[in-house]
């Protein structure tokens, strides 16, 4: 979908939220839901940062690390990609305390989602690094660059552009996964929705607002990533000519 359509959808979503918020039957839910939305955004942003760090580290460890590190990274990626996010969340929340490690729910949420998405992200990073043309690597070798120099100056800047679209998808996935943290007692948007639903039984207004809010947040991420991609690929001869 074109960036204009996405912006139009975002505007429509925001206008509808605004219009609903002025109505009496919806108004009462707004403060609570917005409070929840703030927590959702906090978890999504911190989780994304952790995911980026883990994704890059795991990819580099898997590709260039010494053997034990490579194994460790592989195990990490397989475990976090192989089990579901909710199981990981519950494991960190319910099982770790039994080993004497108690972490508060917010940190568990950020850790679980960040590690989960980071595992998927490491594959994106790996794919993007491998997609850099072989001539670039050979030229680096010919210029007698060291491996870190090669990566930092030549390979990663080019791989970065190829990484943006898949990371955009992952950020959306992460944002949507934040709804899971409502199940470990954090009062995010999904939790507030359920709580209000149980108290008031005003199901339709609550869930309509919540869906629109998630939609608006996802659209912001999608649009942001599109803009970033456009900016990053300036001057690069890639893709279809505009």
């Amino acid at each position: 979908m074109g960036i204009r359509t996405l912006v139009a959808m975002l505007v429509i979503a925001l206008v509808v939220i605004g219009a609903l918020a002025t109505q009496e039957s919806y108004q009462v839910f707004m403060p609570g839901l917005l409070q929840g939305a703030v927590l959702t955004i906090e978890i999504a942003v911190l989780g994304s940062l952790l995911a980026i760090v883990m994704g890059v580290l795991a990819a580099l460890a898997r590709m260039y690390g010494p053997t034990p590190l490579r194994w460790l990274a592989t195990v990490y990626v397989e475990i976090f990609r192989g089990t579901s996010a909710l199981v990981q969340l519950f494991w960190l929340f319910f099982v770790l305390p039994q080993f004497g490690v108690t972490i508060n729910a917010f940190v568990v949420a950020v850790l679980a989602l960040g590690l989960n998405v980071g595992a998927y992200g490491s594959e994106c990073v790996r794919g993007a690094i491998l997609s850099v043309a072989r001539g670039q690597w050979e030229a680096c070798t010919a210029l007698n660059m060291s491996r870190p120099q090669m990566l930092r100056r030549i390979i990663l800047p080019q791989a970065f552009v190829a990484m943006i679209p898949p990371w955009g998808n992952l950020f959306i996935e992460l944002l949507k996964s934040t709804a899971l943290v409502s199940l470990i007692t954090l009062s995010d948007l999904a939790f507030k929705a359920q709580q209000m639903n149980q108290n008031t039984f005003k199901t339709i207004p609550i869930f309509t607002l919540v869906l629109l809010m998630y939609l608006a947040m996802s659209l912001v991420v999608t649009i942001g990533m599109r803009l970033l991609e456009r900016r990053a690929s300036l001057g690069l001869a890639r893709g279809k000519a505009a």
Partner: peptide, 17 residues
Amino acid sequence: LIRSTPLLIQIFFLYFV
């Protein structure tokens, strides 16, 4: 629309709405 909202909320939506 379906892809950019959480599955959990959609489950709640079908179940409660």
